[in-house]
């Protein structure tokens, strides 16, 4: 018999997460470790500001994302379709918000999928985790795409009953300076607290 253990308590990441831990390729999900081998799918660029209370831009926030590949698969044994996953796509990225509070990622548009556990139809989406000094636990949320009919059915999107609040999780098409020429660019600001606060989920 195995002994049941309780997870180690979470703590804040603090202000001193080493700068050298952010690798050049960590914010670009369109390749894993060989830039010559590119992930399949439509290249997208996502950027936005992170704000703390009173709309003060928050620098030095650690942002991580996790998403399925363009075909809606994860390279993970919990996904019954994992053998179909794109070998040149890992689905994970990490970025620190810069001095102006700006975060960004280059990735591919995720595919939707039918959840094997619940049978729910998931719309294309990207999971996001925010870690920062002051946050004893990480904050988690999910980003969705505009003009996706599947959003209407998505169980996570619809876990937020207020239409104007869940709207805050929809990426907005935008012209963004840092976007690669061949990428569709979207903006999504993340408000940790206050007016227009981003909805977060129970972790």
């Amino acid at each position: 018999m195995v002994k049941k253990r309780t997870p180690t308590p979470s703590h804040t990441v603090g202000p001193f997460f080493p700068a050298r831990f952010f690798g050049e390729g960590d914010y670009d999900l369109t390749f894993v470790d060989d830039p010559a081998k590119r992930a399949q799918g439509q290249k997208i660029y996502i950027g936005g500001n992170i704000y703390e209370a009173e709309r003060v831009p928050r620098w030095n926030c650690m942002v991580e994302i996790w998403q399925p590949d363009a075909g809606g698969c994860f390279n993970h044994p919990n996904d019954p379709r994992h053998s179909h996953a794109d070998p040149n796509f890992m689905g994970w990225g990490r970025r620190s918000s810069d001095d102006a509070g700006w975060y960004d990622f280059v990735t591919v548009k995720p595919g939707g999928y039918t959840d094997p556990l619940t049978g729910f139809r998931r719309a294309p989406h990207i999971d996001v985790a925010i870690m920062s000094s002051g946050l004893m636990r990480r904050l988690v949320t999910t980003l969705f795409f505009p003009d996706e009919p599947a959003n209407a059915e998505d169980p996570v999107f619809n876990a937020i009953p207020e239409a104007d609040v869940r709207e805050r999780l929809i990426l907005k098409p935008a012209k963004l300076e840092g976007a690669p020429a061949d990428a569709t660019a979207y903006r999504l600001d993340i408000v940790l607290q206050g007016d227009g606060e981003t909805p977060f989920f129970v972790d």
Binding site: W66, Q67, P68, F74, N78, D79, Y113, D115, P116, L117, T118, F120, R122, H125, D127, T142, P155, V156, A159, I160, P199, F200, F201, V202, D203
Partner: peptide, 9 residues
């Protein structure tokens, strides 16, 4: 925070 179902992601 909002409660959400846990899915494959």
């Amino acid at each position: 925070p909002y409660k959400r179902p846990v899915t494959l992601t």
